[in-house]
Design a protein around this nucleic acid. Structure first.
Lengths: 346, 346
DNA sequence: GTTAGCACTCAATATGCTTTAGTGCTAACA
DNA sequence: TGTTAGCACTAAAGCATATTGAGTGCTAAC
């Protein structure tokens, strides 16, 4: 696998791939002969191309056609891109996200901007909160036998859950419970709520110890529940720009994927797991992607971090012949902005 | 316009439309001659068809083809359907929605079931709350200069808004404000909050009168804000089942409509406005629909009412040749279930 | 090692022919 | 007078058959 390509082959392969990214058409020897500064005739190029084909970097769709990159070819190209990526020479990013009062609005906007700037389909997950702290808890009477627990966690995310009680709970009790909960749980993450804490609370609750159990369960549920993080998408119809994806079969598969969002979750988890690579950007080419049956697509993901362990994933899905360079640039610029805004926010 | 069709023409027209709904192919005289119990030769049918064409109910796509319904033809058919619709003979509805703890989940499910049972694209709006009552309000300290107002309105919908204050607000003040807000505003709808109420509250607030203004504004905003009701969709890819909608142009338009959701809002408002017709079901054929450029589609909408003025809209979007009868039946069954579950819920 | 030249291949396009499903009209019929 | 059989006609759709064009691989000469 780790063959070393001669400088010339290297150049030719890169030229083929770049040309194919642009045009989407198989590229022939003549084109390369003209487009590169190698000053070689088409015949020579043909010989080199035959070699590259043998090595598995490119392939002919049919005898009398030019060559297109294989997955291995793409991988070569992308690896080189990632390798050579210096920190962007800043420059005022033209892309602009506006600060929004709610995080989810901002994320929706990020997805939109990403889709518009790349012309591929974009997705972004809301942060997963394994370890975000409880800011405060508020129990309120909803009904005679129903109490609602409202939990605000860091990032001003609000979760709520209705608790049905066996006996009527009067206002005073509720007040006491509220104080109890807040003094004991505020500032803790879910993981930090130990059995000890709970026992302690029960002791303090006295005759309402029973209720405490229910309430804590509700709180935990509420916080965990939307651990079922949201996924926002944008630009699904962009796939129609690429003929290789817009036949009925592919289009249906891709668009339901975006509508259902279940499969997108697998991208998110995968991206989170692998998040450690250089620059945090990951590229899945063809079959490498977590999708089923999406061998004609590539997926580019990155993880953002808003601090306090609020991490999420953005992703771009497009044809294999996507403009990886632009996608990676746009993505990292956008994320940098997002993270900056979030930083100010606290 | 209000020509009266002879009984025979009536039957023939209906047969043509029904056949076309089934097959999607232009229908010829021979087919009708065989399929109906009129016992007429194809030649006779041809004469009648020529008449119907002249009257504008049907049209020939090209000289040597059968006939397809015009919008006027569809309108005739649908009107008759709506006319003749007796209250469904109940029967245990096979379609089942499960009770969910949160309304939005239930609505999502409704959309899904609707899409699956009809094979068209489905949407449902969350209820609009012009006049839903405030159940309680909770102010909480978020930051030194930030207070969060959480408002719970009927239906256990939670809204929240962060208020930035000029001066630091201490816990005691907050408590007072909380009591003040709740004693004055609970049980009221937005419309019922009069200037008198506000003046009264300010008087009671004493030195914090200034804050009261901000807070009330925040509350009103919070409640109104998601007046920006949500729209849930399902089955957008169903349109690929119908060749007349699945060409690139149509598919892109339709699917972006579903993704963007803005245009869907215009359907919702339209449906709400017109909600007074028989059975509450409305059908927009072709250009009658609120969509732009969607002349090949029909839209069927209905309004649901969960009580307490919590009204919303469901809609189906499909080809003009959709199975209107089934759609209407499915829709009204489903809504009946939804409303029943909501009733129990209170 | 490079290149010109040539025979060859295959997809895509164009061309013309046939089939098919339907029509409208006319003339005969009950 | 309404109905029908029959026939000439039409346009789309299907099919086979050339034509073109972009590209290749190979060979022989530079």
């Amino acid at each position: 696998m780790a063959e070393i390509l001669s400088d010339r082959k290297h150049k030719i392969l890169k030229a083929i791939i770049q040309n194919y990214l642009d045009t989407g058409e198989p590229v022939g020897s003549r084109t390369i002969s003209k487009d590169t500064d190698l000053n070689l005739s088409s015949a020579t190029i043909r010989n080199e191309m035959a070699d590259l084909e043998e090595m598995g970097y490119i392939i002919q769709p049919h005898t009398s056609a030019g060559r297109i990159p294989t997955d291995k070819g793409y991988r070569f190209y992308v690896d080189e891109l990632i390798e050579g990526r210096e920190e962007e020479i800043g420059g005022p990013a033209e892309i602009v996200i506006q600060k929004q009062d709610k995080i989810d609005r901002m994320l929706k906007q990020v997805a939109k901007v990403l889709a518009n700037n790349t012309n591929y389909a974009a997705m972004i997950s809301s942060p997963v909160f394994h370890r975000s702290k409880i800011k405060f808890i508020q129990l309120s009477q909803v009904d005679k036998f129903q109490v609602m627990a409202i939990v605000v966690v860091e990032g001003n995310i609000i979760k709520n859950k209705v608790i049905s009680t066996d006996e009527e709970v009067d206002g005073e009790t509720l007040l006491k419970l509220n104080v109890l909960l807040n003094t004991n749980l505020n500032g803790l993450t879910l993981d930090e709520i130990s059995l000890g804490t709970i026992a302690q609370m029960k002791a303090q609750a006295g005759e309402y110890a029973l209720l405490v159990d229910d309430v804590i369960e509700a709180v935990v549920n509420a916080v965990q529940e939307d651990e079922e993080y949201e996924i926002y998408t944008s630009g699904a119809t962009n796939i129609f720009r690429y003929p290789e994806l817009s036949d009925q079969k592919n289009a249906t598969a891709l668009i339901s994927t975006f509508e259902e969002k279940n499969q997108l979750r697998s991208i998110v988890s995968r991206s989170m797991e692998n998040d450690s690579e250089k620059n945090g950007i990951q590229v899945y080419i063809g079959d490498e992607s977590p999708f089923q049956n999406m061998k004609d697509c590539s997926v580019v993901t990155a993880t953002y971090d808003l601090g306090n362990d609020m991490k999420g994933t953005v992703g771009i899905i497009g044809p294999k012949r996507m403009d990886y360079e632009n996608v990676m640039k746009t993505m990292s610029k956008l994320l940098k902005q997002l993270e900056q805004i979030a930083k100010k926010d606290r």
